[in-house]
Protein backbone atom coordinates (compact mmCIF):
# COMPACT_ATOMS: atom_id res chain seq x y z
CA UNK A 1 0.00 0.00 0.00
CA UNK A 2 1.20 3.52 -0.79
CA UNK A 3 0.76 6.45 1.55
CA UNK A 4 1.66 10.08 0.83
CA UNK A 5 2.80 12.68 3.36
CA UNK A 6 3.85 16.31 3.26
CA UNK A 7 6.78 16.65 5.64
CA UNK A 8 6.31 19.54 8.08
CA UNK A 9 9.76 19.48 9.68
CA UNK A 10 10.94 22.44 7.58
CA UNK A 11 9.33 24.93 5.19
CA UNK A 12 10.46 22.98 2.13
CA UNK A 13 7.46 20.68 2.66
CA UNK A 14 8.71 17.63 0.74
CA UNK A 15 6.04 15.31 -0.60
CA UNK A 16 7.06 11.89 0.66
CA UNK A 17 5.66 8.62 -0.65
CA UNK A 18 5.93 5.51 1.52
CA UNK A 19 5.17 1.93 0.60
CA UNK A 20 3.82 -0.25 3.40
CA UNK A 21 3.59 -4.04 3.47
CA UNK A 22 0.51 -5.94 4.62
CA UNK A 23 1.47 -5.54 8.28
CA UNK A 24 1.95 -1.78 7.98
CA UNK A 25 5.75 -1.93 8.02
CA UNK A 26 7.58 0.55 5.75
CA UNK A 27 9.27 -1.06 2.75
CA UNK A 28 10.14 2.07 0.81
CA UNK A 29 10.33 5.86 1.30
CA UNK A 30 10.86 8.32 -1.56
CA UNK A 31 10.61 12.09 -1.99
CA UNK A 32 12.31 13.23 1.21
CA UNK A 33 15.22 15.66 0.78
CA UNK A 34 16.82 14.82 4.10
CA UNK A 35 16.82 12.29 6.93
CA UNK A 36 14.35 14.30 9.00
CA UNK A 37 11.73 13.34 6.43
CA UNK A 38 12.14 9.62 7.22
CA UNK A 39 11.88 10.39 10.89
CA UNK A 40 8.74 12.44 10.24
CA UNK A 41 6.98 9.70 8.28
CA UNK A 42 7.85 7.07 10.91
CA UNK A 43 6.42 9.20 13.67
CA UNK A 44 3.33 10.14 11.61
CA UNK A 45 2.63 6.41 11.23
CA UNK A 46 3.29 5.38 14.84
CA UNK A 47 2.96 8.43 17.13
CA UNK A 48 2.11 11.72 15.37
CA UNK A 49 3.08 14.75 17.43
CA UNK A 50 2.77 18.54 17.18
CA UNK A 51 4.24 21.49 19.00
CA UNK A 52 1.50 23.54 20.63
CA UNK A 53 1.84 27.33 20.80
CA UNK A 54 -0.67 29.52 22.62
CA UNK A 55 -0.85 32.29 25.25
CA UNK A 56 -1.59 32.62 28.96
CA UNK A 57 -2.89 35.66 30.83
CA UNK A 58 -0.38 37.77 32.79
CA UNK A 59 -1.19 39.89 35.83
CA UNK A 60 0.80 43.00 36.66
CA UNK A 61 2.77 42.92 33.42
CA UNK A 62 3.60 45.42 30.67
CA UNK A 63 1.43 43.21 28.41
CA UNK A 64 -1.76 41.26 29.18
CA UNK A 65 -0.56 37.99 27.62
CA UNK A 66 2.54 35.83 27.48
CA UNK A 67 3.13 33.48 24.54
CA UNK A 68 3.93 29.88 25.54
CA UNK A 69 4.82 26.62 23.78
CA UNK A 70 5.44 22.97 24.46
CA UNK A 71 9.20 22.51 24.72
CA UNK A 72 8.75 19.28 22.73
CA UNK A 73 5.94 18.11 20.46
CA UNK A 74 3.00 16.46 22.24
CA UNK A 75 0.71 13.74 20.83
CA UNK A 76 -1.33 15.28 18.02
CA UNK A 77 -4.68 13.97 19.24
CA UNK A 78 -4.17 15.71 22.60
CA UNK A 79 -3.48 19.21 21.25
CA UNK A 80 -7.06 20.50 21.78
CA UNK A 81 -7.14 18.98 25.25
CA UNK A 82 -3.83 20.67 26.10
CA UNK A 83 -5.14 24.02 24.79
CA UNK A 84 -8.12 23.70 27.15
CA UNK A 85 -5.81 23.05 30.12
CA UNK A 86 -3.55 26.00 29.27
CA UNK A 87 -6.35 28.51 28.51
CA UNK A 88 -7.33 29.30 32.15
CA UNK A 89 -3.73 29.61 33.42
CA UNK A 90 -2.69 33.04 34.75
CA UNK A 91 0.89 33.95 35.67
CA UNK A 92 2.20 36.93 37.59
CA UNK A 93 4.76 39.28 36.04
CA UNK A 94 7.70 39.30 35.76
CA UNK A 95 7.88 36.29 33.47
CA UNK A 96 11.27 35.10 32.24
CA UNK A 97 11.86 33.56 28.82
CA UNK A 98 11.76 29.72 29.01
CA UNK A 99 9.97 29.86 32.37
CA UNK A 100 7.93 26.72 33.06
CA UNK A 101 4.27 27.76 32.89
CA UNK A 102 2.66 24.33 33.17
CA UNK A 103 4.68 21.30 34.23
CA UNK A 104 4.16 17.88 32.66
CA UNK A 105 1.12 18.80 30.53
CA UNK A 106 -1.51 16.01 30.52
CA UNK A 107 1.06 13.66 32.05
CA UNK A 108 3.11 13.66 28.82
CA UNK A 109 6.32 14.54 30.67
CA UNK A 110 6.53 17.71 28.54
CA UNK A 111 6.52 21.22 30.01
CA UNK A 112 4.78 24.29 28.64
CA UNK A 113 7.28 27.18 28.71
CA UNK A 114 7.20 30.90 27.88
CA UNK A 115 8.69 32.10 24.57
CA UNK A 116 9.52 35.63 25.76
CA UNK A 117 9.94 37.68 28.91
CA UNK A 118 7.28 40.03 30.27
CA UNK A 119 8.44 42.72 32.67
CA UNK A 120 6.33 44.20 35.43
CA UNK A 121 4.46 47.32 34.57
CA UNK A 122 1.57 49.30 33.22
CA UNK A 123 -1.73 47.47 33.19
Amino acid sequence: MEKKFICIRCPQGCEITTTLDGLGAITDITGNSCKLGIDYVKSELSDPRRTITTTVAVTGGELPLCPVWSEKPIPKDRVMEAAAVIRPITVAAPVDINQVICENILGTGINIISSRAITKGGQ
Partner: peptide
Amino acid sequence: IHNGFGSVIFKKDLPGP
Protein backbone atom coordinates in the same frame (compact mmCIF):
# COMPACT_ATOMS: atom_id res chain seq x y z
CA ILE B 1 3.81 33.16 18.54
CA HIS B 2 3.75 29.92 16.51
CA ASN B 3 6.89 27.86 15.97
CA GLY B 4 8.69 27.50 12.65
CA PHE B 5 11.40 30.14 13.00
CA GLY B 6 15.15 29.56 13.02
CA SER B 7 15.53 26.32 11.04
CA VAL B 8 18.41 27.74 8.98
CA ILE B 9 20.32 29.88 11.49
CA PHE B 10 19.73 28.04 14.78
CA LYS B 11 18.81 24.60 13.40
CA LYS B 12 15.88 24.86 15.79
CA ASP B 13 12.15 25.24 15.49
CA LEU B 14 11.45 28.33 17.62
CA PRO B 15 8.38 30.53 18.17
CA GLY B 16 8.71 34.05 16.70
CA PRO B 17 9.29 35.85 20.02
